[in-house]
Amino acid sequence: MAGKGRGFQVFSNVILTILCFCTVMPFVLLVSSSLTSDATIAVYGYSFFPRQIDTTAYRYLFLSGSKILKAYGMTFLVTGIGTTLNICCTMAMGYLLSKKDLPGRAFLSFFIFFTMLFNGGMIPSYIVWSQLIKVSDTIAGLIFPNLMLSAFNVILMRTYFTTNIPNELCEAAEMDSDTQVGILFHISIPLSKPMLATLTLFSALAYWNDWINGLYYLVRKKDLYTIQNVLNSMQNNIQFLRDFSSASSLGGFAGSIPTLSVRMAIAVISIVPILAIYPFFQQYFVRGIVIGGVKG
């Protein structure tokens, strides 16, 4: 690790700085275009520094756009509930499977692993959730389908428990007549913070960025749309106009599509919370992934 070469230090720093610049640059473009009027973009194109700061888009969102604010609230709500459920299930399953002497352990592991390889596809999945479980047109439609449990996360969790919780600790607790559930809450969870933080971030991102569930399950209750659904719906409407622009009668609709800067502004507010929260998780991230990623 500790190479002496000063040259290598410089080299590493330069390369990483360039890479960081590349990752951040597009977001600067996004913010900049949300602060530029459409007329300016039409003339000068997208640019990194707004020629003239124009906050119309944001005023439009926060003054008249109660719909946008509501969608924003929905995103928070769904992410909160969904992530909580996800983490509880993942933890319970991961912990169960981490018990090496568990009857049926191999079978249960494969039962979980198999779901990573096979799926029934869009329509069957839709039929199960909408007709058997009836989540359509409720907030449950945003929370349950597809996102509530990921086999991958369960495997990460299991691996973390098996490799990071010393067996002796559990045995000692058993001696103290602590129950298995008690051990989970008193020993395993407190010792698994990095992994839990990592999985919380994974799950929260999946919920925050999802637009499929809203599109499929909220057909008759679009006032429950999340911010990603709003963004996606606008994009779809624009593509529709592009594909069917031949229909002259559609011309009247152009006024219903929010302007470019408004769309960019919605995009900006959709990522702000993530960027704000993420550094707090980030400190656990490296430790969480490390051991989880490698098989134990």
Binding site: I123, Y126, I127, S130, Q131, K134, S136, L215, Y216, V219, R220, K222, S233, M234, Q235, N236, N237, I238, Q239, F240, F253
Partner: peptide, 22 residues
């Protein structure tokens, strides 16, 4: 009345047409 936005309509109508209960 079921409002369907033109951009989402093709997906949503197809799904609704598979949903015999609703």
């Amino acid at each position: 009345m079921v409002p369907l936005a033109f951009g989402d309509r093709s997906t949503q109508l197809t799904l609704m047409l598979t949903d015999a209960d609703n």
